[in-house]
Computed example of a mutant assay.
Amino acid sequence: MRFVFRLVALFLLAAAAIVAAFVWWANRPLDLPGEAVEFRVAPGSSLHGTIQQINAAGIPLQADLFKLLARWQGKVNAIKAGSYATDSGETPLTLLVKLVEGRVSQASVTLVEGWTFRQFRARLDAHPALRHDSRTLDEAAISARLGLPWRQLEGRLLPDTYLFDKESSDLEVIARAAAAMQKQLGAAWAGRPAGLPYRSPDEALIMASIIEKETGRPEDRPHVAAVFINRLRQGMRLQTDPTVIYGLGENFDGNLRKSHLQTDTPYNTYTRAGLPPTPIAMPGPASLRAAFQPAASDALYFVARGDGSSHFSRTLDEHNRAVNRYQRGGK
């Protein structure tokens, strides 16, 4: 009997030693090849496949022990796909928790107010943390791939900073920016005051893009909006340079000439009445708000003062005097 007790005691001691060694391994920092090693778990990966991808990144993770750890924690099927980065002092246990909680490493990209879609695409194409699925697609193809109803995406994306899981598709970022703009535009249209000269949300978006490009100071946005809205109401041409420049496209060399103002294009608001056919840039929330909430003003003209602000005028004579003062050096 004494022998049996000794045998059981030895067995329990051995089991305790094994458990202690396993716990020690689970909480021991991994021998990483660098301070922060990045790796990606592909969607649909099994636990075995996940371990293979981690090892392929240079992280020495013992497969059998990590599988045992995942089973012990009841997390065999709970690992989430995505891009990850190891932290200083990362242990097998903290790595498992990170994978289960989906604490992916993120990057960001910023869509700047007033940018064109072409400028935003260039930023996406140059971003090292994105998968460039849109690079060979034109705007119509991107829209079709995302199920969007427009052939052109100018003005359809809300300027903001977008966080994303590294190695995400650039199409995902475009889709999120488009959804964010539609949400803001839809809310603004639903709560619009009576009397605005827009026949559709798209026309309000076009106006917001013009306000974005014409405003030097934030406080001027509602007043710029009032000028263009007053012109629309009276049937006056908008006569705004940014639309002409947009219509010139890549042919514009930075110098707007009189001949440009006289050359008819769908975007020339000197030769054509009403709004241009599409937005000319990505308007931010403030410009969108100004398009729906213009200042209470009967101004029909404005001119840049040279310090970023604008002078607003009710009559052409007053406007001409302001032009002479601020742009021609008159008094």
Rank of each mutant, 00 (worst) to 15 (best):
E219Q: 14
E219G: 12
E219I: 11
D220L: 02
D220P: 05
R221L: 08
R221D: 02
P222H: 03
H223P: 00
H223M: 15
H223N: 05
H223Q: 13
V224F: 00
V224H: 02
A225M: 04
A225V: 01
A226W: 03
A226K: 07
V227P: 06
F228N: 07
F228S: 05
F228A: 03
I229W: 05
I229P: 14
I229D: 12
N230L: 00
R231C: 04
Q234V: 01
G235V: 05
M236L: 13
M236W: 07
M236E: 07
R237G: 07
T240Q: 04
T240I: 10
T240P: 10
P242Q: 04
P242M: 07
T243N: 03
T243F: 00
T243H: 09
V244M: 07
I245N: 03
Y246R: 06
Y246K: 06
G249S: 13
G249I: 13
E250W: 14
E250F: 10
F252P: 15
F252H: 14
D253Q: 15
D253V: 13
D253G: 12
D253K: 15
G254I: 08
N255F: 14
N255K: 15
N255H: 15
N255Q: 14
R257F: 11
K258W: 11
K258M: 12
H260Y: 01
H260R: 09
L261H: 02
L261K: 08
Q262D: 15
Q262W: 09
T265S: 14
T265V: 02
P266T: 04
P266C: 01
Y267L: 08
N268E: 02
N268V: 10
N268D: 00
T269V: 04
T269W: 03
Y270V: 11
T271N: 02
R272T: 13
R272I: 07
R272F: 12
R272P: 14
P276I: 08
P276S: 09
P276Q: 10
P279I: 02
P279F: 05
P279R: 04
A281D: 00
A281T: 09
M282Q: 14
G284C: 06
G284N: 04
P285F: 11
P285R: 15
P285E: 12
P285A: 15
S287T: 06
S287M: 04
S287N: 03
L288P: 10
L288Q: 09
L288E: 09
L288T: 03
L288C: 08
R289W: 14
R289Q: 15
A290S: 12
A290G: 10
A290K: 10
A291K: 10
F292C: 06
P294C: 02
A295K: 03
A296S: 14
S297V: 04
S297M: 02
S297D: 01
D298S: 14
D298G: 01
D298A: 13
A299G: 06
L300I: 04
L300R: 02
Y301I: 05
V303F: 00
V303E: 00
V303M: 06
A304P: 11
A304W: 01
A304S: 14
R305C: 08
G306H: 01
D307Q: 07
D307F: 12
G308W: 01
F312K: 05
F312L: 00
